[in-house]
Design a protein around this nucleic acid. Structure first.
Lengths: 138, 138
DNA sequence: GTTGGACCGGTACTTAAGTACCACCGCCAT
DNA sequence: ATGGCGGTGGTACTTAAGTACCGGTCCAAC
């Protein structure tokens, strides 16, 4: 954030310096004021555009980062339980989750049951929506 | 989209016209070139910022609009079935959906069963993920 | 006017999900 | 070394979900 402002500020300064150089030296002494205005208008319009995009992209990345938060630990959800939660969100059955995680269906049932109580849900579908509300799932 | 470009183009034109007026008339004939450049740089930097934001907002709205597409009809999903699908996605049970839609649980079961076959899913959780893949649910 | 689809509701059934225990193992912290 | 915790797995059970029919109403299109 601060880095972006610094870099774009530097760029703006460089452009103004370029103007000084070009006006009083050999490069383009004959340019009219209107032309200069037009050039700088275009330049800074573009600059504003790019800056805005950069800032947005940064904000978006931050948002993605804090979607998966450390709230999982606060809820007392263990590593394995979270893995099961992710599998539930993809729409798999207990048997299918058991197969992908190489454990028995009984184990998955235990994990799911623990997840439901920790997420304060009564159904696996509700657990998924709760998890998204709590920003621990995409 | 075209409206935004038109409006901002008009705004840019107005600013340049303002420059012409102010330079050769009574308002501010004594301003130096550097000052003018600085003023226009700031103005157009802001303009670029605002334009970019407007365009982004528009794009976001478009994206939300085409998330709910007419693919629902292609799949032969009826109005009522879609309502049930939305309710499923919130994590409600058949009984809860029945209560909110003022029908019996049997009816909801029928709708859910039809939805599952139309969405090619075997569980309601899978139906939700399928629906999101098909962009008929947020 | 009858055919078709959407909607509602029911019965009877199978299967999946969820609950409530219990037990065993491995770890690591007190 | 003992207690707690995470992970695993089991049994026995209840409840929810899903399937496969059926019948009925309403409405629009042919």
């Amino acid at each position: 954030m601060k880095g972006i402002i610094f870099r774009f500020g530097l760029l703006a300064f460089a452009l103004l310096a370029l103007f000084q150089l070009s006006k009083y030296t050999l490069i383009a002494p004959g340019f009219s004021d209107e032309l200069w205005i037009a050039i700088f208008a275009t330049l800074f319009l573009t600059l504003g555009f790019v800056m805005s995009r950069q800032l947005r992209k940064n904000a978006a990345n931050d948002a993605i980062d804090d979607i998966d938060s450390s709230r999982v630990e606060e809820l007392g959800i263990s590593q394995r339980e979270y893995e099961v939660l992710v599998q539930i969100a993809t729409g798999k059955s207990n048997k299918e989750i058991a197969d992908t995680l190489f454990v028995s269906e009984s184990t998955i049932k235990t994990h799911v049951s623990n997840l439901l109580s920790k997420l304060d849900a009564r159904r696996r579908t509700q657990a998924v929506t709760r998890a998204k509300e709590l920003r621990i799932l995409k």
